[in-house]
Design a protein around this nucleic acid. Structure first.
Lengths: 188, 188
DNA sequence: AAACCTAACTAACAAGCGTTAGTTGGCTTT
DNA sequence: AAAGCCAACTAACGCTTGTTAGTTAGGTTT
Protein backbone atom coordinates (compact mmCIF):
# COMPACT_ATOMS: atom_id res chain seq x y z
CA UNK A 1 0.00 0.00 0.00
CA UNK A 2 2.95 2.32 0.66
CA UNK A 3 5.05 1.60 -2.41
CA UNK A 4 5.86 4.40 -4.81
CA UNK A 5 4.77 3.58 -8.33
CA UNK A 6 6.20 4.98 -11.53
CA UNK A 7 2.97 6.90 -11.93
CA UNK A 8 3.57 8.58 -8.58
CA UNK A 9 7.02 9.63 -9.70
CA UNK A 10 5.61 11.13 -12.90
CA UNK A 11 2.98 13.05 -10.97
CA UNK A 12 5.54 14.35 -8.52
CA UNK A 13 7.88 15.46 -11.30
CA UNK A 14 4.99 17.05 -13.15
CA UNK A 15 3.94 19.02 -10.05
CA UNK A 16 7.48 20.37 -9.80
CA UNK A 17 7.42 21.54 -13.41
CA UNK A 18 3.88 22.91 -13.10
CA UNK A 19 5.01 25.02 -10.18
CA UNK A 20 7.80 26.59 -12.21
CA UNK A 21 5.93 27.33 -15.44
CA UNK A 22 2.29 26.47 -14.97
CA UNK A 23 0.29 23.57 -16.41
CA UNK A 24 -0.16 25.00 -19.92
CA UNK A 25 3.50 25.87 -20.43
CA UNK A 26 4.76 22.40 -19.50
CA UNK A 27 4.77 19.98 -22.42
CA UNK A 28 4.68 16.21 -22.22
CA UNK A 29 8.16 16.29 -23.76
CA UNK A 30 9.37 18.58 -20.95
CA UNK A 31 7.98 16.13 -18.44
CA UNK A 32 9.49 13.14 -20.23
CA UNK A 33 12.91 14.79 -20.36
CA UNK A 34 12.73 15.53 -16.63
CA UNK A 35 11.96 11.84 -16.10
CA UNK A 36 14.79 10.76 -18.41
CA UNK A 37 12.47 9.01 -20.87
CA UNK A 38 10.59 9.75 -24.12
CA UNK A 39 7.20 11.46 -24.19
CA UNK A 40 5.36 8.41 -25.55
CA UNK A 41 6.62 6.31 -22.65
CA UNK A 42 4.67 8.43 -20.19
CA UNK A 43 1.49 6.93 -21.57
CA UNK A 44 2.39 3.52 -20.19
CA UNK A 45 1.64 5.02 -16.77
CA UNK A 46 -0.86 7.82 -17.23
CA UNK A 47 -3.74 8.23 -19.62
CA UNK A 48 -3.39 11.94 -20.35
CA UNK A 49 -1.85 15.23 -19.28
CA UNK A 50 -5.20 16.16 -17.83
CA UNK A 51 -5.18 13.09 -15.57
CA UNK A 52 -1.93 14.29 -13.99
CA UNK A 53 -3.44 17.64 -13.12
CA UNK A 54 -6.53 15.98 -11.70
CA UNK A 55 -4.47 13.65 -9.49
CA UNK A 56 -2.44 16.55 -8.12
CA UNK A 57 -5.31 18.91 -7.39
CA UNK A 58 -8.17 16.68 -6.30
CA UNK A 59 -6.15 14.71 -3.74
CA UNK A 60 -5.03 17.98 -2.13
CA UNK A 61 -8.48 19.51 -2.21
CA UNK A 62 -9.90 16.42 -0.53
CA UNK A 63 -7.21 16.53 2.14
CA UNK A 64 -8.24 20.08 2.99
CA UNK A 65 -11.89 19.14 3.03
CA UNK A 66 -11.24 16.25 5.37
CA UNK A 67 -9.06 18.37 7.66
CA UNK A 68 -11.69 21.08 7.85
CA UNK A 69 -14.37 18.53 8.65
CA UNK A 70 -12.42 17.34 11.67
CA UNK A 71 -11.77 20.88 12.91
CA UNK A 72 -15.42 21.79 12.48
CA UNK A 73 -16.57 18.79 14.52
CA UNK A 74 -14.12 19.31 17.40
CA UNK A 75 -15.24 21.14 20.52
CA UNK A 76 -12.58 23.79 20.55
CA UNK A 77 -13.02 27.53 20.87
CA UNK A 78 -13.23 29.41 17.59
CA UNK A 79 -9.75 30.85 17.99
CA UNK A 80 -8.40 27.36 18.64
CA UNK A 81 -10.17 26.20 15.49
CA UNK A 82 -8.46 28.98 13.54
CA UNK A 83 -5.14 27.82 14.95
CA UNK A 84 -5.92 24.33 13.70
CA UNK A 85 -6.76 25.64 10.25
CA UNK A 86 -3.43 27.42 10.06
CA UNK A 87 -1.72 24.21 11.14
CA UNK A 88 -3.64 22.26 8.49
CA UNK A 89 -2.38 24.58 5.76
CA UNK A 90 1.20 24.60 7.00
CA UNK A 91 1.19 20.83 7.34
CA UNK A 92 -0.23 19.97 3.93
CA UNK A 93 1.76 22.68 2.16
CA UNK A 94 5.10 21.72 3.71
CA UNK A 95 4.58 18.15 2.53
CA UNK A 96 3.75 19.14 -1.05
CA UNK A 97 4.72 22.66 -2.05
CA UNK A 98 4.75 21.69 -5.73
CA UNK A 99 1.22 20.36 -5.70
CA UNK A 100 -0.03 23.40 -3.83
CA UNK A 101 1.20 25.62 -6.65
CA UNK A 102 -1.01 23.72 -9.10
CA UNK A 103 -3.93 23.85 -6.71
CA UNK A 104 -3.63 27.62 -6.54
CA UNK A 105 -2.72 28.48 -10.10
CA UNK A 106 -3.94 25.73 -12.42
CA UNK A 107 -7.31 24.66 -11.04
CA UNK A 108 -9.05 26.44 -13.92
CA UNK A 109 -7.47 23.99 -16.36
CA UNK A 110 -9.33 21.08 -14.80
CA UNK A 111 -11.90 19.71 -17.19
CA UNK A 112 -14.09 16.85 -15.95
CA UNK A 113 -13.35 17.62 -12.30
CA UNK A 114 -13.68 21.40 -12.35
CA UNK A 115 -17.17 21.53 -10.88
CA UNK A 116 -16.26 19.06 -8.16
CA UNK A 117 -13.21 21.11 -7.23
CA UNK A 118 -15.21 24.33 -7.09
CA UNK A 119 -17.76 22.63 -4.87
CA UNK A 120 -15.07 21.52 -2.43
CA UNK A 121 -13.55 24.99 -2.37
CA UNK A 122 -16.84 26.75 -1.81
CA UNK A 123 -17.67 24.34 1.00
CA UNK A 124 -14.27 24.90 2.60
CA UNK A 125 -14.64 28.67 2.52
CA UNK A 126 -18.14 28.46 3.93
CA UNK A 127 -16.91 26.43 6.90
CA UNK A 128 -14.09 28.90 7.44
CA UNK A 129 -16.55 31.80 7.36
CA UNK A 130 -18.84 30.05 9.87
CA UNK A 131 -16.04 29.71 12.38
CA UNK A 132 -15.24 33.42 12.10
CA UNK A 133 -18.90 34.36 12.51
CA UNK A 134 -19.30 32.16 15.59
CA UNK A 135 -16.19 33.75 17.06
CA UNK A 136 -17.64 37.21 16.58
CA UNK A 137 -20.96 36.18 18.05
CA UNK A 138 -19.46 34.80 21.25
CA UNK A 139 -16.99 37.66 21.59
CA UNK A 140 -13.78 35.72 20.89
CA UNK A 141 -13.16 37.69 17.72
CA UNK A 142 -13.53 41.44 17.24
CA UNK A 143 -16.52 42.67 15.30
CA UNK A 144 -14.89 43.60 11.99
CA UNK A 145 -15.84 42.88 8.39
CA UNK A 146 -15.99 39.07 8.13
CA UNK A 147 -15.14 39.00 4.44
CA UNK A 148 -12.04 41.11 4.95
CA UNK A 149 -10.86 38.80 7.73
CA UNK A 150 -11.60 35.67 5.70
CA UNK A 151 -9.89 37.04 2.64
CA UNK A 152 -6.82 38.13 4.54
CA UNK A 153 -6.33 34.79 6.29
CA UNK A 154 -7.04 32.68 3.22
CA UNK A 155 -4.72 34.75 1.03
CA UNK A 156 -1.87 34.24 3.42
CA UNK A 157 -2.50 30.53 3.87
CA UNK A 158 -2.87 29.96 0.14
CA UNK A 159 0.43 31.67 -0.54
CA UNK A 160 2.37 29.44 1.82
CA UNK A 161 3.61 27.28 -1.06
CA UNK A 162 5.65 30.21 -2.36
CA UNK A 163 7.24 30.91 0.95
CA UNK A 164 7.75 27.62 2.76
CA UNK A 165 10.40 26.11 0.47
CA UNK A 166 12.61 29.12 1.19
CA UNK A 167 12.62 28.29 4.88
CA UNK A 168 15.20 25.68 5.82
CA UNK A 169 13.93 22.68 7.80
CA UNK A 170 10.40 23.73 8.65
CA UNK A 171 9.03 23.07 12.09
CA UNK A 172 5.32 22.81 11.39
CA UNK A 173 4.21 23.51 14.97
CA UNK A 174 6.51 26.48 15.43
CA UNK A 175 5.74 28.09 12.09
CA UNK A 176 2.02 27.58 12.60
CA UNK A 177 2.21 29.25 15.99
CA UNK A 178 4.07 32.27 14.64
CA UNK A 179 1.71 32.59 11.72
CA UNK A 180 -1.44 32.24 13.85
CA UNK A 181 -0.11 34.85 16.21
CA UNK A 182 0.45 37.39 13.42
CA UNK A 183 -2.86 36.62 11.71
CA UNK A 184 -4.95 36.70 14.88
CA UNK A 185 -3.21 39.24 17.12
CA UNK A 186 -1.92 41.50 14.37
CA UNK A 187 1.47 43.16 14.27
CA UNK A 188 0.99 46.14 16.56
CA UNK B 1 -1.71 62.14 -24.63
CA UNK B 2 -4.89 60.61 -23.18
CA UNK B 3 -6.28 58.90 -26.27
CA UNK B 4 -6.82 55.16 -26.23
CA UNK B 5 -4.99 53.48 -29.08
CA UNK B 6 -5.88 50.15 -30.69
CA UNK B 7 -2.76 48.76 -29.05
CA UNK B 8 -4.12 49.74 -25.64
CA UNK B 9 -7.36 47.93 -26.39
CA UNK B 10 -5.48 44.77 -27.39
CA UNK B 11 -3.40 44.86 -24.21
CA UNK B 12 -6.48 45.39 -22.07
CA UNK B 13 -8.32 42.51 -23.74
CA UNK B 14 -5.24 40.31 -23.43
CA UNK B 15 -4.96 41.04 -19.72
CA UNK B 16 -8.55 39.96 -19.28
CA UNK B 17 -7.90 36.65 -21.06
CA UNK B 18 -4.59 36.14 -19.25
CA UNK B 19 -6.41 36.48 -15.95
CA UNK B 20 -8.88 33.74 -16.86
CA UNK B 21 -6.49 31.18 -18.32
CA UNK B 22 -2.95 32.37 -17.88
CA UNK B 23 -0.50 33.67 -20.50
CA UNK B 24 0.48 30.29 -21.95
CA UNK B 25 -3.05 29.03 -22.41
CA UNK B 26 -4.21 32.11 -24.33
CA UNK B 27 -3.50 31.93 -28.06
CA UNK B 28 -3.18 34.83 -30.43
CA UNK B 29 -6.29 33.45 -32.14
CA UNK B 30 -8.18 33.60 -28.82
CA UNK B 31 -7.11 37.20 -28.43
CA UNK B 32 -8.04 38.07 -32.00
CA UNK B 33 -11.48 36.51 -31.62
CA UNK B 34 -12.06 38.50 -28.45
CA UNK B 35 -11.15 41.64 -30.41
CA UNK B 36 -13.40 40.65 -33.30
CA UNK B 37 -10.53 40.46 -35.81
CA UNK B 38 -8.14 37.85 -37.29
CA UNK B 39 -4.93 36.82 -35.54
CA UNK B 40 -2.66 38.28 -38.20
CA UNK B 41 -4.28 41.67 -37.79
CA UNK B 42 -2.98 41.92 -34.24
CA UNK B 43 0.50 42.34 -35.65
CA UNK B 44 -0.39 45.71 -37.12
CA UNK B 45 -0.39 46.98 -33.54
CA UNK B 46 1.92 44.80 -31.49
CA UNK B 47 5.18 43.08 -32.37
CA UNK B 48 4.71 39.84 -30.46
CA UNK B 49 2.74 38.04 -27.78
CA UNK B 50 5.68 38.59 -25.47
CA UNK B 51 5.45 42.35 -25.92
CA UNK B 52 1.88 42.30 -24.61
CA UNK B 53 2.96 40.54 -21.44
CA UNK B 54 5.83 42.96 -20.98
CA UNK B 55 3.57 46.00 -21.35
CA UNK B 56 1.12 44.64 -18.78
CA UNK B 57 3.62 43.62 -16.15
CA UNK B 58 6.38 46.21 -16.34
CA UNK B 59 4.07 49.22 -16.22
CA UNK B 60 2.44 47.84 -13.07
CA UNK B 61 5.73 46.91 -11.45
CA UNK B 62 7.01 50.41 -12.09
CA UNK B 63 3.87 51.95 -10.61
CA UNK B 64 4.47 49.99 -7.40
CA UNK B 65 8.12 50.99 -7.33
CA UNK B 66 7.24 54.64 -7.73
CA UNK B 67 4.54 54.47 -5.07
CA UNK B 68 6.88 52.79 -2.63
CA UNK B 69 9.54 55.41 -3.27
CA UNK B 70 7.14 58.19 -2.28
CA UNK B 71 6.04 56.38 0.87
CA UNK B 72 9.63 55.71 1.84
CA UNK B 73 10.59 59.37 1.49
CA UNK B 74 7.60 60.74 3.43
CA UNK B 75 7.96 61.59 7.11
CA UNK B 76 5.18 59.47 8.44
CA UNK B 77 5.28 56.96 11.26
CA UNK B 78 5.95 53.38 10.24
CA UNK B 79 2.36 52.35 10.84
CA UNK B 80 1.19 55.24 8.71
CA UNK B 81 3.58 54.09 6.00
CA UNK B 82 2.06 50.62 6.16
CA UNK B 83 -1.36 52.17 5.75
CA UNK B 84 -0.10 53.95 2.67
CA UNK B 85 1.26 50.71 1.25
CA UNK B 86 -2.11 49.04 1.69
CA UNK B 87 -3.73 51.98 -0.03
CA UNK B 88 -1.21 51.76 -2.87
CA UNK B 89 -2.11 48.13 -3.49
CA UNK B 90 -5.86 48.69 -3.27
CA UNK B 91 -5.64 51.69 -5.56
CA UNK B 92 -3.55 50.10 -8.30
CA UNK B 93 -5.37 46.78 -8.12
CA UNK B 94 -8.85 48.29 -8.27
CA UNK B 95 -7.86 50.15 -11.43
CA UNK B 96 -6.46 47.07 -13.17
CA UNK B 97 -7.47 43.74 -11.69
CA UNK B 98 -6.74 41.94 -14.96
CA UNK B 99 -3.19 43.21 -15.19
CA UNK B 100 -2.55 42.34 -11.56
CA UNK B 101 -3.40 38.72 -12.31
CA UNK B 102 -0.63 38.63 -14.93
CA UNK B 103 1.78 40.36 -12.60
CA UNK B 104 1.19 37.69 -9.99
CA UNK B 105 0.90 34.59 -12.12
CA UNK B 106 2.73 35.13 -15.38
CA UNK B 107 5.85 37.10 -14.51
CA UNK B 108 7.95 33.96 -15.05
CA UNK B 109 7.06 34.00 -18.73
CA UNK B 110 8.78 37.33 -19.24
CA UNK B 111 11.86 36.92 -21.40
CA UNK B 112 13.98 40.01 -22.02
CA UNK B 113 12.51 41.85 -19.04
CA UNK B 114 12.57 39.06 -16.46
CA UNK B 115 15.71 40.22 -14.68
CA UNK B 116 14.49 43.81 -14.57
CA UNK B 117 11.17 42.70 -13.09
CA UNK B 118 12.89 40.58 -10.44
CA UNK B 119 15.08 43.51 -9.54
CA UNK B 120 12.08 45.78 -9.04
CA UNK B 121 10.32 43.16 -6.95
CA UNK B 122 13.33 42.51 -4.74
CA UNK B 123 13.77 46.21 -4.20
CA UNK B 124 10.11 46.64 -3.32
CA UNK B 125 10.21 43.84 -0.76
CA UNK B 126 13.39 45.21 0.76
CA UNK B 127 11.78 48.62 1.28
CA UNK B 128 8.73 46.96 2.81
CA UNK B 129 10.96 44.96 5.16
CA UNK B 130 12.85 48.10 6.20
CA UNK B 131 9.66 49.83 7.24
CA UNK B 132 8.66 46.87 9.41
CA UNK B 133 12.10 46.73 11.00
CA UNK B 134 12.07 50.45 11.79
CA UNK B 135 8.65 50.05 13.34
CA UNK B 136 9.90 47.30 15.61
CA UNK B 137 12.95 49.30 16.56
CA UNK B 138 11.00 52.35 17.64
CA UNK B 139 8.30 50.31 19.35
CA UNK B 140 5.42 51.02 16.97
CA UNK B 141 5.23 47.38 15.91
CA UNK B 142 5.41 44.34 18.17
CA UNK B 143 8.63 42.35 18.15
CA UNK B 144 7.59 39.30 16.12
CA UNK B 145 9.23 37.48 13.23
CA UNK B 146 9.71 40.11 10.52
CA UNK B 147 9.57 37.59 7.68
CA UNK B 148 6.27 36.17 8.90
CA UNK B 149 4.79 39.66 9.09
CA UNK B 150 6.11 40.63 5.67
CA UNK B 151 4.91 37.42 4.09
CA UNK B 152 1.45 37.70 5.61
CA UNK B 153 0.90 41.28 4.52
CA UNK B 154 2.33 40.82 1.04
CA UNK B 155 0.31 37.64 0.44
CA UNK B 156 -2.89 39.43 1.27
CA UNK B 157 -2.07 42.50 -0.79
CA UNK B 158 -0.97 40.42 -3.77
CA UNK B 159 -4.21 38.46 -3.72
CA UNK B 160 -6.38 41.57 -3.90
CA UNK B 161 -6.89 41.11 -7.64
CA UNK B 162 -8.88 37.93 -6.97
CA UNK B 163 -11.10 39.54 -4.44
CA UNK B 164 -11.69 43.14 -5.46
CA UNK B 165 -13.76 42.50 -8.62
CA UNK B 166 -16.30 40.62 -6.47
CA UNK B 167 -16.96 43.74 -4.46
CA UNK B 168 -19.44 46.13 -6.05
CA UNK B 169 -18.34 49.73 -6.40
CA UNK B 170 -15.12 49.79 -4.44
CA UNK B 171 -14.37 52.68 -2.14
CA UNK B 172 -10.57 52.66 -2.09
CA UNK B 173 -10.24 54.65 1.12
CA UNK B 174 -12.78 52.61 3.02
CA UNK B 175 -11.52 49.22 1.88
CA UNK B 176 -7.93 50.22 2.60
CA UNK B 177 -8.88 51.28 6.12
CA UNK B 178 -10.66 48.01 6.85
CA UNK B 179 -7.83 45.97 5.42
CA UNK B 180 -5.13 47.90 7.27
CA UNK B 181 -7.05 47.48 10.47
CA UNK B 182 -7.26 43.70 10.12
CA UNK B 183 -3.65 43.35 8.99
CA UNK B 184 -2.19 45.59 11.69
CA UNK B 185 -4.51 45.10 14.69
CA UNK B 186 -5.43 41.47 14.00
CA UNK B 187 -8.85 39.96 14.42
CA UNK B 188 -9.04 39.38 18.15
C1' DA C 1 10.59 -23.48 -21.79
C1' DA C 2 6.44 -20.70 -22.37
C1' DA C 3 3.73 -17.08 -21.18
C1' DC C 4 3.27 -12.76 -19.19
C1' DC C 5 4.18 -8.17 -17.49
C1' DT C 6 6.71 -3.89 -17.17
C1' DA C 7 8.60 0.01 -19.00
C1' DA C 8 10.95 1.62 -22.30
C1' DC C 9 11.47 2.62 -27.48
C1' DT C 10 10.68 4.56 -32.77
C1' DA C 11 7.67 6.60 -35.88
C1' DA C 12 4.03 9.09 -36.96
C1' DC C 13 -0.50 11.69 -36.78
C1' DA C 14 -3.63 15.64 -37.07
C1' DA C 15 -4.34 19.79 -34.89
C1' DG C 16 -2.86 24.00 -33.21
C1' DC C 17 0.90 27.39 -32.38
C1' DG C 18 3.15 32.29 -33.18
C1' DT C 19 4.33 34.79 -36.84
C1' DT C 20 5.32 36.72 -41.76
C1' DA C 21 4.26 38.31 -46.49
C1' DG C 22 1.59 40.52 -49.41
C1' DT C 23 -2.94 42.69 -50.42
C1' DT C 24 -7.10 45.66 -50.03
C1' DG C 25 -10.56 49.11 -49.04
C1' DG C 26 -11.43 53.32 -46.82
C1' DC C 27 -10.16 57.60 -44.67
C1' DT C 28 -7.07 61.72 -44.34
C1' DT C 29 -3.69 64.75 -45.89
C1' DT C 30 -1.39 66.99 -49.64
C1' DA D 1 -6.99 63.97 -58.02
C1' DA D 2 -2.89 61.84 -55.99
C1' DA D 3 -0.41 60.05 -52.26
C1' DG D 4 -0.10 58.10 -47.89
C1' DC D 5 -1.70 55.87 -43.88
C1' DC D 6 -4.54 52.83 -41.05
C1' DA D 7 -6.41 48.57 -39.87
C1' DA D 8 -8.21 44.99 -41.48
C1' DC D 9 -7.83 40.74 -44.65
C1' DT D 10 -6.16 35.81 -46.97
C1' DA D 11 -2.75 32.47 -47.26
C1' DA D 12 0.79 30.22 -45.68
C1' DC D 13 5.24 29.06 -43.10
C1' DG D 14 7.84 25.94 -40.03
C1' DC D 15 7.45 24.21 -35.57
C1' DT D 16 5.35 22.21 -31.47
C1' DT D 17 1.54 20.07 -29.30
C1' DG D 18 -0.82 15.82 -27.04
C1' DT D 19 -1.45 11.40 -28.27
C1' DT D 20 -1.64 6.62 -30.71
C1' DA D 21 0.20 2.35 -32.81
C1' DG D 22 3.24 -1.05 -32.88
C1' DT D 23 7.66 -2.99 -31.23
C1' DT D 24 11.30 -4.64 -28.08
C1' DA D 25 14.36 -5.98 -24.25
C1' DG D 26 14.52 -7.71 -19.66
C1' DG D 27 12.51 -9.67 -15.49
C1' DT D 28 8.99 -12.60 -13.22
C1' DT D 29 5.55 -16.13 -13.02
C1' DT D 30 3.62 -20.39 -14.63
Amino acid sequence: MKEITRKDEIIKTAAKLFKEKGYSAVTMRDLATAMGIKAASLYNHISSKQEILKEIIISLAEAFTQGMEQIKMSNNTCVEKLNKIVELHVSITSQNTFGMASLNNDWMHLEEQLDYYLELRLNYEENFRSILKSGIQNGEISNKNVEVMLFSMLSTLRSLYIWIPNKDAINVKKLSAQLSNVLIEGIR
